[in-house]
Simulated scan of single mutants.
Amino acid sequence: MQFVDALPVLAVLGTGVVYGVDVFFALIGRRALAESSDAAIADVMGRLHQVADARMPIFGVTGLLATIASAAVSPIGTTTIWLNLIAIAGLLVQLSLYLIVAKPINTKMTEAAQRKEVLSDIRELQHRWDSVIVARAIAMTLAVGCLITATSLR
């Protein structure tokens, strides 16, 4: 197997990790957190963001770079290149929502959890974070679907 042949696999695997996390929180996490206490949200989500923000970028970056590289080596005008370009668009939408909305909230929650503090606006912060998770999950679903389809066409 040549490196070029491994690019779609890397794209699917890296993107798949982020996809799974976003879909989990869109379908399960939001509901569970809505029924949790402020203290539980503050502690658990602060600690989850602390760990995830340190570890998840490797998967997201791998997925995005492999998708870009896969598009770059796809023949122009083929369905494969279009699927890769649509996947890139989905990944960039998800990344933008993360960087603009979620990341600043993650940072506040992480810092508060490290201080063992429950922020007075913890529920509002969680609600704001939740407000983009469905869109992030949809963007990732589009990306993963396109990547899997493009891989099957190779």
Rank of each mutant, 00 (worst) to 15 (best):
A150I: 03
R30T: 11
R30S: 15
R55N: 07
V4T: 08
S120R: 09
A150W: 00
W129H: 08
A87I: 15
T110R: 08
T80Y: 04
V4A: 13
G60S: 10
V17P: 10
V118M: 01
T141K: 04
N106F: 04
Y19H: 13
D43F: 15
D43M: 11
A89Y: 02
C146W: 00
I81Q: 07
R136D: 00
D130V: 06
A69V: 02
E35F: 08
G77A: 05
H127E: 14
A39I: 09
L33S: 11
T62P: 05
D121I: 06
V21I: 15
V4L: 07
L27V: 03
S36T: 15
P75Y: 13
A143I: 02
G63E: 07
T110F: 00
D130A: 13
P57W: 05
L153M: 13
A87F: 10
A40N: 12
S152Q: 12
T149F: 09
A34L: 10
V12M: 06
D22N: 12
T80N: 01
A26Y: 03
V4H: 11
E117C: 10
N106Q: 13
T107P: 03
L83E: 00
Q126P: 03
D43E: 14
L125P: 04
T67E: 03
R136K: 04
L142V: 15
A6D: 12
V93W: 01
D121H: 08
A143H: 07
L147M: 07
T15S: 15
A113Q: 05
M109E: 06
R55I: 09
P8W: 09
A6P: 05
D53W: 01
S96M: 12
P75M: 09
L65P: 04
Q114I: 12
